[in-house]
């Protein structure tokens, strides 16, 4: 069973092809922007154009545009190859990567860049499962959160008493996710659009 993994939810743009849980090939670039231009050439560079039996795509939260690029591509590939498409949480993958890197099974909190200067925050327990859905929080609120001993993500929590692992999600680490990680292939934006209805504005 081959799995194509697509991760475009952050500054990283990465794809990986697995046979079962064994990594066959991957591409991982930190590009900031331009996922819509890089993604398909990266997939096309995988063996057999990345053709797989199922697709796993990072559904967020993260960059609104990045999530859409990944989900749109995954759904279209799923249609073309007539295969199933599933999602996984952006911060879940970061938590799984942090646990794998540290070799520790302890709880981990993930803090990632959000929109408008806010951060996405999600806490994971000692089995690697989310305790509550990711929330978008103001940076100053982090000081009031009772953080776990181990913090991961691309935001430095600035708390000297905690271990921080600087991590961006990487499709190559997909196999580290808990077995029951699959979500619907639907964007998890984590923030509402900024626009307010005319009546609310007035």
């Amino acid at each position: 069973m081959r799995t194509l993994v697509i991760d475009t939810a952050t500054r990283a743009c990465s794809v990986a092809l697995f046979d079962g849980k064994q990594l066959l090939a991957a591409q991982h670039e930190v590009i900031g922007r331009g996922h819509a231009e890089r993604l398909l050439p990266l997939i096309a560079a995988l063996p057999d154009n990345g053709k797989a039996d199922q697709i796993m795509v990072d559904v967020g939260p993260g960059s609104f545009t990045g999530i859409r690029v990944g989900v749109a591509a995954a759904k279209a590939l799923g249609l073309a190859w007539r295969i199933q498409v599933h999602g996984y949480g952006c911060l879940s993958l970061v938590a799984a990567m942090a646990r794998a890197q540290s070799g520790s099974q302890a709880a981990v909190d993930v803090i990632m860049t959000g929109g408008h200067g806010e951060y996405f925050f999600e806490a994971f327990n000692d089995t690697g499962h989310s305790i509550a859905p990711a929330r978008s929080v103001l940076p100053e609120l982090l000081a009031t959160v009772a953080l776990a001993d181990h913090v991961a993500g691309d935001i430095d929590p600035q708390r000297g008493d905690r271990v921080w692992t600087d991590i961006l999600p990487d499709a190559r680490a997909w196999a580290h996710l808990p077995d029951d990680h699959a979500l619907p292939p639907v964007p998890v934006y984590g923030r509402a659009p900024d626009a307010k209805p005319a009546a609310v504005r007035a």
Partner: peptide
């Protein structure tokens, strides 16, 4: 541009896969 990218990426993926 956000909408344009959705259609264009969908087309790119369909084109690459087929």
């Amino acid at each position: 541009i956000g909408g344009v990218m959705v259609g264009l990426v969908t087309a790119k993926a369909l084109a690459m896969a087929s």
